[in-house]
């Protein structure tokens, strides 16, 4: 694997890194690129925020007053 990946490839690796354990060379190449590329760094943070938010969807949806106890 080339040391400096194109951003298009980095976005694929960032996404796959959320679904599988990346290999050592993939992790190194990713870290090198992310340290130097602001756009991909922002992309990675956006992906993490997206993951957190989707996990929270069920907890947040629906009116809060449907429970038997009002607080």
């Amino acid at each position: 694997m080339k040391l400096m990946l194109p951003c298009s490839e980095v976005t694929r690796l960032v996404s796959q890194g959320l679904d599988r354990r990346l290999g050592l060379s993939e992790r190194v190449a990713l870290r090198v690129h992310l340290a130097m590329c602001e756009g991909c760094g922002n992309f990675e943070r956006q992906m993490k925020l997206l993951r957190e938010a989707v996990r929270q969807l069920a907890e947040a949806e629906g009116p809060r007053d449907t429970g038997p106890h009002s607080t």
Binding site: E59, G62, D65, G67, T71
Partner: peptide, 14 residues
């Protein structure tokens, strides 16, 4: 086990 802190719907969805 329902403590009333979240809505009933949220608890059930969990």
């Amino acid at each position: 086990g329902y403590d009333g802190r979240s809505s009933l719907r949220t608890w059930l969805t969990g």
